[in-house]
Design a protein around this nucleic acid. Sequence first.
DNA 1: CAGTGAGCGAGCTTCCGCTTGACTT
Length: 592
Amino acid sequence: MAISHKLVIVESPAKAKTISKYLGENFTVLASVGHIRELVEPKNVPKELKKTSIGKFAVDVDNGFTPYYGITAGKTKTISDLKAALKGADELYLATDEDREGEAIAWHLLEVLKPKVPVKRMVFHEITKEAIQGALEHTRALDTDLVEAQETRRIVDRLYGYEISPVLWRKINRGLSAGRVQSPAVRLVVERERERMAFVSAAYFDVKASFDPNTAGEPVFEAKLQTVDGQRIATGENFDDKGQLSGNVMLLDSAAAEALAAAVGVPGVNIEVVSVEAKPSTRRPAAPFTTSTLQQEASRKLRMGAKQTMDTAQGLYQEGYITYMRTDSPTLSGQAISAARSQATKMFGAEYVSDAPRLYSGKSKNAQEAHEAIRPAGEVFKTPAELSTLLHGRAYDLYELIWKRTVASQMQDAKVSTTTAKIKVGPLNDGRTAEFTASGTVVTFRGFLAAYEESQDESRNQDEAAESKLPNLAVGQKLSLVEVNAKDHQTSPPPRYTEASLVKALEEDGIGRPSTYASIMSNITNKGYVTKRGQALVPEWIAFTVIRFLEDNFGKMLDYKFTASMEEDLDLIADGKLNAKEWLKHFYFGGD
DNA sequence: CAGTGAGCGAGCTTCCGCTTGACTT
């Protein structure tokens, strides 16, 4: 009797290598390397079909939106390798990712390979020996409804892009492009620029003073004028983007601020602590990385662009240092949770590790969660120190970032205490009383902060958060003035998007996928819609022109909610509750 | 007759998402 031999097909060659180790010699594991078939380019459809809609879209819109597929360029060798391997196999396992695209790849494989042996659909969400072997035991049939949802997504994108782009060629300029993803992305950048152009800056003054507690060992500290006779002083947050002041606040101009500073500075004025309040709070660690959060954090902490981050992560993945880097799930496998917890215990002590394992669930709109979070690979994480001779430069920095974030995600909350002191100054020589406030934050228990802290985007019109230490103060304590200054400020316009903040905004609306965030950035810059100035994304004039035109003529398609509502309908198609052809008909021909 | 101009047809640009290398930015 011949020895049974099985062929397993996954999407990624690196994954094939790892899985092959878990499955033993009766299995051959090969990769499709992504999609193997594609809607053909209209210019490549046969001459006799050129006159029909197939010649325009490679989709027959008049006959049930039938797609016209061809082998993806460069994939003939992959396919012949798969066919050759299938010849020696008595069973085929389609182990592409368990998401919409993965299901479609599995179906295309069936269409192209036409296997004569039994076929099973095998799925797993983490690459561990247990998960892979468990998946072998729990195979299922191909989900044709899910495949249909993917096909619908693919067709919508072709119809949208190839219908609207030519309108732009005719009306504006050759070579322009529009699409379900790129057009809202450009629109975000354009709208932000419009806000900046319409922005009216406002000027205001504040008054800051330094006080000496006159107690041995206690430092001089800075406080800010908060109220005068109980009336709040205006700050940047009290202005809107038109420069209009709102709220019951007192605006200080130069003269008023200088006068107050002078009055506070008069020798002998009473300066007294009137209240000291300590508020304890806790901070929780951030969830493990997804593609989107990795790109954001690598931008903030390492100043790396989206593409650079992904290229570096790809290298780490292929060398077996991290798990898959294109994921929308922050979930860690059980194996990873115990690895993170034991490493944190060893390095920081048991009191630094959260009592129960922390579980994170995704919140992004169209998450498909085929993979786990991005984390160090393996049952025992390698510390950055252990890899310091193997990894260098950006690869090392990115690994360290991923390692810290993963370990911190299983650690204790940090405990902090924010103390706010109110200081009465007065009566001043004009009879009024000024109140200053100072606050200081002290970390009372570091918890996860011992390993890692997420960076924040710079916030607008807010005082640089002074994480200063406040001296010990007592109510009724008299202070002496060291110096007092009036300073002018201006409100600033909303900041331009960066690659990181644009990826974040797109993800929040469910626009784009982990595999495309980086390429969306290069697409809109290569097409000339957006240029990078430092980190900032600046729209070109052609972007204003195109977006204006699309808003006037294709408003619904440009709606930020278009993708989200499409996703809802695709889910219904995947559940067999909505007819794909009817939906496409409504999308393309309109009406009811 | 030579030169000009109207009119026509063909070819080019374009989408999103999955995956790696290839040396076109």
